[in-house]
Design a protein around this nucleic acid. Sequence first.
DNA 1: ACAAAGTCTACCTTATAAGTAGATTTTGTT
DNA 2: AACAAAATCTACTTATAAGGTAGACTTTGT
Lengths: 144, 144
Amino acid sequence: MLSKKTQYALYALTHLAKEYGKGPVLIGKIAEDEKIPKKFLEGILLELRNKGIVSSKKGKGGGYYLLKRPEEVTLVEVIRGFDGAIALLPCVSEKYYEECSSCKDEATCGIKSIMKEVRDKTVELLSNNTLADIILKENMLKNI
Amino acid sequence: MLSKKTQYALYALTHLAKEYGKGPVLIGKIAEDEKIPKKFLEGILLELRNKGIVSSKKGKGGGYYLLKRPEEVTLVEVIRGFDGAIALLPCVSEKYYEECSSCKDEATCGIKSIMKEVRDKTVELLSNNTLADIILKENMLKNI
DNA sequence: ACAAAGTCTACCTTATAAGTAGATTTTGTT
DNA sequence: AACAAAATCTACTTATAAGGTAGACTTTGT
């Protein structure tokens, strides 16, 4: 399971993607619409800002806005940024690899080989989908 | 990521699968071979016993052994039994479904539709693989 | 000057992961 | 019957992270 933080980040980013190019959106507006605790969301947006995905404007008329284009933000980067590895086992992770503590030979480990298939498929799906795809799917589902 | 508990459970079960039909295996033997803290493993094996996957024999000559056949134990049931849901979001889980707290309409939620693809693929892979498959893959990888 | 925004620092509470210690019960062997 | 080898049970411990809150501070448009 993704942490609440990651889930909220995905909903907040989708919200901002829908308002892309329309100027800053208030934290309070996002929090209310997406039902995210406001103070918690503040911290999440700050993290997204540090990662260079969103930017903000202070003072009256301020708020948050997407810095990258919606087509450029993949789900995998958001999830990795908050929760870390996608893989189910450390010995199978691309970005957070750790040597297997239990098995004698990673090259012939059967568990590893299955978990690697799972990771590859998951990464594939999460890399091929961006914020733009989320909106696209939403529109497709609505118009039919 | 799977919890250590689940990881250890998978390694312990694979060990027992390799000894299937050869009588009880000592906790200490499994712990040593698979590098699992013995006391921790005790608790894991007890849980696996409550789930009806393994059984045990007390006293001299005792130990643990697989109750089901290796072909009957899927990875998905082990993982679900210890860590719970496979899905990345509660609203996409088969066995641990929870209504989405944020989205207005789950039927048209774009995030949900992508996460459902991920879950379906993961469940497919983890259901189609059993302890017997782990051993099979291991042998394949070794013999070539 | 003022109010509306985001920003920063510092908390809090609860649950879970991961592991340990030691007494108890069962059972095969002598 | 005695003994020792096993699993079993109860009860801790310790550390970390999740999830969230409070309030003072800074920036900026009007």
